[in-house]
Write a protein that binds this DNA or RNA. Structure first.
Lengths: 151, 151
DNA sequence: TGTTGTTAGTTACTTTTGTAACTAACAAGA
DNA sequence: TCTTGTTAGTTACAAAAGTAACTAACAACA
């Protein structure tokens, strides 16, 4: 007998394994757990610190505000990450002369070295992922994820 | 002039936007933020609570241990979620007669209703996502995510 | 100059998570 | 029955994240 029309497709079976937000979260956690070893074990860094470091290394000196906007990280998280990186002697701050509320953050040599190291690790990680998924699928995945992150 | 061989592809430019763990995380957060309104605003539930509820609704009575394994949630998180759901009168526990360490968790009527409601919301959410991405790409995304979550 | 409103960044407080140690119950064998 | 080892679930403490309120500096204009 043919299947009848339904109000909702497969109303009966709905597993978490077909719920995209769940899968996204599982995959994100799994990947993050693996890569975080790179900055956690060697530098005792947290994810936000790694991101802030990355932005500074990638874009040169920035203010906390600029990092916050460009990386979509809340300013309190940035503030805490900056302090942690400062305590590790990875960056220095100089009060901006034209606006004394804001600070110019720059990587110091140890911070620059950490950036280079982690940046390389990230590229290697990405390359390994591309190996696993295949170039085509890896690219497709990134494309799809980009389409999602706005919503 | 032709591009020379490099040790690493595009050694020069490496943006966060091409780093899959970053994209995964952004997308996962964005999606979770949207869907969490469903269980947060109406039921005051946390994500782990929603997951535990879902498992109970989907698979019938289970022990905390079983949920923990089947959902890959740490047992302390499950323990806290179970207590929260119990306080909301969404579930009841009965000490298992054959092993008094373990408890049979069952959804009570209000919990069952919340499950049905949220389950429907999840299906609608998934359907909307499928609309946005297109059936083919939505399916592809799920497939790729599944391939990632083991690592 | 004084007032009003805005902005960069920090701090204080609360909520949530992670980790480890714990309790009570079980299991299997001496 | 008395170890010894394991397991289900909880609790206590520490680390991290979210939220709101705050400080100091700025801007614009009366």
């Amino acid at each position: 007998m043919k299947k009848l029309a339904q109000t909702r497709e497969s109303d009966d079976i709905f597993e978490l394994s077909s719920f995209t937000p769940y899968l996204l979260n599982q995959a994100a956690e799994a990947q993050s757990d693996v890569f975080s070893r790179n900055y956690r074990e060697r530098y005792g860094m947290l994810r936000t610190e790694w991101r802030v470091l990355f932005h500074l290394g990638r874009h040169g000196d920035m203010s906390a505000k600029e990092i916050s906007e460009s990386a979509s990280i809340h300013k309190t998280k940035v503030s805490r990450a900056v302090r942690a990186l400062e305590e590790k002697r990875f960056l220095s701050r100089i009060t901006s002369p034209d606006d004394r509320r804001s600070e110019r953050l720059s990587l110091r040599p140890p911070g620059q070295e950490a950036f280079r190291h982690l940046s390389r690790a990230a590229q290697d990680y990405e390359a390994a992922l591309e190996q696993r998924l295949g170039k085509r699928d890896a690219r497709k995945l990134r494309e799809l994820l980009k389409r999602l992150d706005g919503t």
